[in-house]
Simulated scan of single mutants.
Amino acid sequence: MVVYNINQVSFRQAPCPSGLFSRMNATMRFLIWGAMPFGALLGGLLGSTIGVRGTLLAGAVGRSLTFLPVFLSPLRRMRELPSYVEPAGEGPAAGPLGPRES
């Protein structure tokens, strides 16, 4: 998990302008953590319809296939991360709407 987290955060931040790191990280956390209640609901529904063993089997099969999107994507063949180059005259204080007011 440590290696995964380091790589996925690095891959997300490399092409992102520095002024948008917080928004990008908040969006990803919302998507990832926000999906957990739906997974719990689905697990409860499956448990009550097909039983606990069937639900655990479905979860194990589903979890064993989670590598497929990355395995089948161009990410596997990348040797360097894409990077964002700040436009001239804009530093970290400049965001998507221009320089910050002090």
Results as ranks from 00 to 15, higher is better:
residue 78 M to K: 03
residue 6 I to H: 09
residue 46 L to E: 11
residue 24 M to K: 08
residue 60 A to H: 04
residue 46 L to K: 13
residue 71 F to P: 04
residue 32 I to D: 13
residue 38 F to Y: 10
residue 69 P to Y: 02
residue 67 F to N: 11
residue 43 G to P: 10
residue 100 R to D: 05
residue 64 S to M: 05
residue 38 F to K: 06
residue 1 M to F: 15
residue 67 F to L: 14
residue 53 R to T: 11
residue 98 G to P: 01
residue 38 F to Q: 04
residue 38 F to W: 12
residue 87 P to R: 06
residue 35 A to S: 12
residue 52 V to S: 08
residue 70 V to Y: 12
residue 20 L to H: 12
residue 72 L to Q: 10
residue 80 E to M: 02
residue 50 I to H: 03
residue 78 M to L: 03
residue 60 A to C: 07
residue 64 S to F: 04
residue 97 L to F: 03
residue 12 R to H: 06
residue 41 L to T: 03
residue 25 N to A: 09
residue 22 S to L: 06
residue 27 T to K: 01
residue 14 A to P: 01
residue 54 G to F: 07
residue 98 G to K: 01
residue 102 S to M: 07
residue 70 V to Q: 10
residue 39 G to H: 08
residue 23 R to L: 13
residue 96 P to S: 08
residue 35 A to M: 12
residue 102 S to T: 04
residue 27 T to R: 02
residue 73 S to M: 07
residue 76 R to S: 13
residue 39 G to A: 10
residue 51 G to D: 00
residue 57 L to P: 03
residue 20 L to D: 14
residue 21 F to W: 13
residue 38 F to D: 02
residue 52 V to H: 06
residue 100 R to M: 05
residue 67 F to E: 02
residue 8 Q to S: 11
residue 4 Y to N: 14
residue 69 P to N: 02
residue 95 G to R: 13
residue 28 M to R: 04
residue 20 L to G: 04
residue 9 V to L: 11
residue 23 R to T: 14
residue 4 Y to W: 14
residue 73 S to I: 07
residue 86 E to V: 00
residue 72 L to Y: 09
residue 73 S to D: 01
residue 36 M to G: 02
residue 89 G to I: 00
residue 32 I to E: 13
residue 51 G to R: 09
residue 82 P to N: 01
residue 36 M to H: 04
residue 79 R to Q: 05
residue 74 P to A: 04
residue 37 P to T: 07
residue 79 R to N: 03
residue 17 P to V: 03
residue 54 G to R: 06
residue 48 S to N: 15
residue 52 V to Q: 06
residue 67 F to G: 13
residue 49 T to E: 08
residue 19 G to V: 01
residue 92 P to I: 05
residue 75 L to T: 14
residue 83 S to D: 07
residue 86 E to I: 00
residue 75 L to G: 06
residue 67 F to Q: 10
residue 60 A to K: 05
residue 77 R to G: 06
residue 1 M to K: 14
residue 59 G to L: 15
residue 96 P to W: 03
residue 90 E to T: 09
residue 75 L to I: 14
residue 99 P to E: 01
residue 77 R to K: 15
residue 40 A to R: 07
residue 8 Q to Y: 11
residue 16 C to I: 07
residue 21 F to C: 05
residue 51 G to N: 00
residue 81 L to V: 00
residue 46 L to F: 12
residue 14 A to W: 03
residue 13 Q to M: 09
residue 74 P to V: 07
residue 95 G to D: 08
residue 98 G to M: 00
residue 38 F to E: 05
residue 8 Q to W: 14
residue 32 I to M: 13
residue 96 P to H: 05
residue 71 F to L: 15
residue 4 Y to H: 13
residue 70 V to C: 10
residue 94 A to N: 06
residue 88 A to Q: 11
residue 69 P to A: 01
residue 16 C to M: 11
residue 58 A to M: 13
residue 10 S to Y: 06
residue 51 G to E: 00
residue 75 L to D: 11
residue 17 P to G: 09
residue 15 P to W: 00
residue 99 P to N: 02
residue 64 S to K: 10
residue 72 L to A: 12
